Simulated scan of single mutants.
Amino acid sequence: MKQIFKQVKNFIFDKQIRFGYLSTLGFYNWIPDDIYLKKEFKVRIGNELNLNNPQTFNEKIQWLKLYDRHPEYTMMVDKYAAKQYVASKIGDDYIIPTLGVWTKFDDIDFDKLPNQFVLKCTHDSGGLVICKDKSTLDINAAKRKIEHCLKRKYYYIHREWPYKNVPPRIIAEKYMTDNANSSTTNETLKDYKFYCFDGKVRFLMINSDRNSKMSTKADYFDRDFNWLDFTWGYEHANVRPVKPDCFDEMISISEKLSKGLPHVRVDLYECNGQIYFGELTFYDGSGFDKIEPIEWDYKIGKMLKLPSK
């Protein structure tokens, strides 16, 4: 009862929670993108959104959503199609193997899947089921989660245009395990996110303690691996991450994949000394995670040179 009361109280008094909840229900779907983003920016960041002369990184991300729209972006965020696109750029060796792709959950033949695998929705963020042991997998719970995500139009939540026309599908991927650390699995693979501007890596983020969203830590480094003192949605790790052995190769891959783009984040994993592609992210935090101190929002904003409308 107390939990229900707390949820109702948060809905009434917390603007961000109320706005997010109504957005997921489709309450604001009818609002034009520019008006919606101005409203969301005010709710989440607390400032008016300046689209005429954006200065901060978060402001420029909203501008890109509205005015930098290319058909190939849809393919690049599609978790299935992006694999083929990336493989054509850097080769198949960097791609986590796909075990199957389906449009309906009931079409999945679990008997043909290995004992361990990962299910993902191709068109959203969060549609994920990790199977460590098929004999204990709750298929009904997995079905409920995946089918809920298949129905969700992810584009409407933060108006990330590339997702608007991604076909909703399900893929199964190989379950990745790092033999150097038997406790390291798909949930905690070493995760490196490279922030690229006009085809050049300017800095990167390394995630730590990714067992849950609440415990995730993030540290930032420039391309020479000097630590950068700012936060962006997560606290710093208690133990500062070390430079990976394959760092230079990661830089090279990221710059190949970001060539010709004003901005993209290239997400890579390191597993058993091998680099694997994760995803391409155009709008980090959808442009709504606060960068602190605020000076860094402006510094990163200066790295992003907006193209012509």
Rank of each mutant, 00 (worst) to 15 (best):
C246F: 06
F41N: 08
A218W: 02
P71H: 10
V266G: 02
D133L: 07
F282V: 01
Y298P: 00
F5A: 04
E235W: 15
D138R: 13
I146G: 04
K60R: 13
W161K: 07
Y94P: 08
Y73A: 10
E173L: 09
H148A: 14
I17F: 13
F277P: 04
D224Q: 06
G26F: 10
D133Y: 01
E48Y: 14
K213M: 12
F110P: 04
G301M: 09
K299I: 07
D14V: 05
E255W: 07
S252N: 05
K299N: 07
F13G: 08
K9C: 02
R159C: 06
R210G: 10
K89M: 05
S208Y: 04
C271H: 07
V43N: 08
N165G: 10
A180V: 13
I31H: 02
K83E: 13
L119A: 09
K259L: 11
E187C: 15
R44H: 14
K302H: 15
K145A: 09
D78C: 03
I291V: 01
K153G: 13
E59L: 00
L257M: 08
L119Q: 13
Y73R: 14
E173P: 05
A142I: 04
G285R: 00
I95G: 00
A141S: 07
I4W: 05
Y73T: 06
T103V: 11
V166N: 09
G26D: 00
E270S: 14
W102P: 06
L189G: 02
K145S: 09
F11G: 14
R210I: 05
C121D: 06
K15T: 14
F117M: 01
V242Y: 13
A87G: 12
I96G: 01
T56L: 04
G126D: 03
A82D: 12
I253P: 00
T216K: 06
K145W: 11
C271Q: 06
D138S: 15
K42R: 09
D14I: 12
K15E: 14
V201R: 05
D267N: 09
I294A: 10
L51R: 08
T216W: 12
C121S: 05
Y195G: 02
T188I: 03
F11C: 12
I108M: 08
E48H: 15
L119W: 14
F105C: 04
D14E: 03
S286H: 13
V118E: 00
W232L: 01
T98W: 05
Y80Q: 10
Y192F: 11
P167R: 13
M176V: 06
Y154E: 04
K132Q: 13
S212R: 06
K65T: 10
F194R: 06
